[in-house]
């Protein structure tokens, strides 16, 4: 028996007044929203935690270290279930919080641990004299980070940050586990309802790839824009 493509499946009505294409686009929107919100949480938390790990304060460093170990030593899927099932039953007010927020926190904090390590590595790759030069001219430690260390550290970590940003889009697929109607959730339900799993999964795969690649291009644009003239490793 020969296989027949049936891409028209996307034009079928879901039974709710919309086509499967409409549903897929809206699911894609959820994927993008979850990813974007998690990215903001991850970059903010990761930057703060990574920076704290390089400050002279021993207890802030330990606190940041604990953060990193906590969020990177537990599988992402388990973390999502903990946010969804465990924490709200320990702390009742969280039961009112929509699962979208819980997923954003779970994915954001999970990724923040990885970004924190990258930011730390970026800061530590700078010569020790840079910090000394900032302090020696009378900048406070905070100003030295703000004007001297972090601008260079962030440029250095753009490549791993690009991978991390693409990972966040792919990792957002686990949100299906708490019934967020994102792309993976759509794929599973649509294939069940239509029995056209091949078309559905190929389309979803294409969307994931296109999205991740677009993120890659955006980051490459910033990498080129922020390149420091004459600095080792840059082109001119």
């Amino acid at each position: 028996m020969q296989f027949r493509w049936e891409w028209e499946v996307f034009l079928r009505d879901t039974g709710g007044g919309e086509t499967y294409l409409d549903w897929m686009i809206s699911a894609w929107g959820w994927t993008l929203t979850v990813s974007a919100c998690s990215w903001v949480v991850a970059v903010l938390a990761g930057s703060v935690v990574g920076t704290l790990r390089t400050t002279p304060s021993a207890w802030l460093g330990r606190l940041a270290n604990a953060w990193v170990e906590l969020f990177r030593n537990v599988p992402l899927l388990v973390q999502i279930f903990i946010w969804y099932h465990v924490i709200p039953s320990l702390y009742k007010p969280l039961q009112e919080v929509p699962s979208f927020i819980l997923v954003v926190l779970a994915l954001g904090f999970f990724t923040s641990a990885r970004i924190a390590e990258q930011v730390r590595a970026g800061i530590q790759s700078l010569p020790r004299g840079q910090r000394e030069a900032g302090l020696a001219m009378g900048l406070t430690l905070a100003q030295t980070y703000r004007f001297v260390l972090l601008p260079m550290a962030f440029r250095i970590v753009i490549p791993p940050l690009t991978s991390e940003s693409m990972n966040i889009i792919k990792n957002s697929a686990v949100a299906f586990a708490v019934s967020i109607s994102e792309l993976t959730m759509f794929a599973m339900q649509a294939q069940e309802e239509t029995s056209r799993g091949i078309e559905v999964y190929l389309a979803v795969t294409g969307l994931y790839m296109a999205t991740a690649f677009a993120v890659n291009r955006v980051m490459a644009f910033f990498e080129a824009r922020l390149r420091v003239p004459g600095y080792v490793g840059s082109d001119h």
């Binding site: 840079q130 004459g230 600095y231």
Partner: peptide, 13 residues
């Protein structure tokens, strides 16, 4: 107190 370092330590960015 002005300070000048062995490796200059200008801010590259």
């Amino acid at each position: 107190v002005g300070m000048v370092f062995q490796h200059f330590e200008l801010f590259p960015h």
